[in-house]
Nucleic acid binder design. Sequence first.
DNA 1: TCGACACGACCGACCAGTCAGTCGAGTGAG
DNA 2: CTCACTCGACTGACTGGTCGGTCGTGTCGA
Lengths: 203, 203
Amino acid sequence: MTVDADRAVARKAQIFEAAAAVFARLGYHHARMDDVVRAAGVSKGGLYWYFRSKEELATGLVHQMLAHEAEAMRAVMTAGAPAADRLRMVVRAFARELAQNPDRAPLALELLALGRTIPEIRTCFDAHHEQFVEHLAVLLAQLGGPDSPAPGPRARTAALAVAAMIDGMVLRWTLARSPFDLEDALWAAVQVLLRGLRETGPR
Amino acid sequence: MTVDADRAVARKAQIFEAAAAVFARLGYHHARMDDVVRAAGVSKGGLYWYFRSKEELATGLVHQMLAHEAEAMRAVMTAGAPAADRLRMVVRAFARELAQNPDRAPLALELLALGRTIPEIRTCFDAHHEQFVEHLAVLLAQLGGPDSPAPGPRARTAALAVAAMIDGMVLRWTLARSPFDLEDALWAAVQVLLRGLRETGPR
DNA sequence: TCGACACGACCGACCAGTCAGTCGAGTGAG
DNA sequence: CTCACTCGACTGACTGGTCGGTCGTGTCGA
């Protein structure tokens, strides 16, 4: 294939980083390819050597971001720790990630909305969400305690609720004028949800 | 001001309706003003008589949609029914609204994302969210039962969680490839949340 | 007759994408 | 060793289509 594939990978990464920053600052539609070019320290032609179009750049960026997140999730899932602790780690990972670069959340929101126009982005988010719920369901089933949701459909329903809770709280945090402590609020809410989930008898 | 203010209001409403449909179908950025013009049965000049720019049209649309929703919320709040029933009504209103026109949710998501570029939209959503949480807090405090969250900060925190739950579930529903029954899932999740909220002793 | 309202052809800024060309690292025949 | 040639990577000035917005011109009710 390429003589030096590593170079290509590095170049792509460099462009992704620049694109993320530019898209985060200006928003996808207002960002000019020339802006990305400038930020990445590449030429216009160089950019188009690696990406066929602006949409492909955005799609690639989504892939990269979600892959990164999936990687983190997989790491948590395979960590040798009690399920309760691993759940806590998931929440903390979200909060830390967003606290460190607050631009990420609005960027993700915009890319998500972009899914309406670019089907592949939608598909990508879709698959990612599906897998996230799947992971959560496993985690919840492993929680232990006699009344933790049983594996199977019940755990999946519970996982959907937890996932929605996380999404919603992150969304609120993203949009809030006076940002609250995301980790605290998120963890508290998830705990409340779990408490409600226990004690759930038939139906 | 206008000789016939009613006519102007009607015209605006007609344009809003068309704009909502076009934006929902094509997405804000892909939608051409000419598309809106065609859909609304107005001329370009007519459209620009009422809206100074595309952004102002979008902003107006956001105002109108949120005002409509706020209206519905106020109606629920002042309804003469037990708090539990009113909460149920809120959930049902969401589910029905979205079931009736499934295009609304993605449209709202896109407009929300547009808030990154158009500050007034962001402000508008912000105020709306704030008020929504406020209403929910009142509702939760009125829920009755000895352990319903007390009015004040505690109710507000609880309300934030409930609001996030609703947002998140709607988001999941919006993006899900195989849409589930939103009303069921939402109500179940809210109930779980409330159950967890009860029994919450000090801290 | 007047002015609010409506019309739609037209303008021109803007920007994604192109393309003709440069550069430097291989390759291999003589 | 070297010269002629290939090829992948990269450059940046340029273009052509696309729309948001304008403007000169009606129309019609009061």
